[in-house]
Amino acid sequence: MMDLMVTPAHYVMLAAILFGLGAFGALTRRSGLMLLMCVELMLNAANLVFVAYGKQYGDTGGQVIAFFIMAIAAAEAAVGLAILIGVFRTRLNLDVDDLTSLRDEV
């Protein structure tokens, strides 16, 4: 029966899987928008770890940090989407494989 008990460690395992999914998506999808959404998934995994460990140690600080990550995610989404719109305006697609104009010519 003890095995069925859910401890905060289970939430950390779930967050690890979620982070892995987000990282895999960020590496394999080519649209810039999908990249941003996968980054949101990874940030959420980090959030889940903070809240879970806050529960494990009985500390509200974990939840406060989760708020800060939410604020950072909002800032990232605003700036990232503004950049994507700028990219779309000049190139008419968002394929991140094509964004090579800053790459050093060798």
């Binding site: 401890t7 905060p8 460690a9 529960k55 494990q56 140690y57 009985g58």
Partner: peptide, 10 residues
């Protein structure tokens, strides 16, 4: 990860 019991948190 190590399993530990959760504590009440406000």
């Amino acid at each position: 990860v190590t399993h530990a019991d959760s504590k009440p948190v406000d």
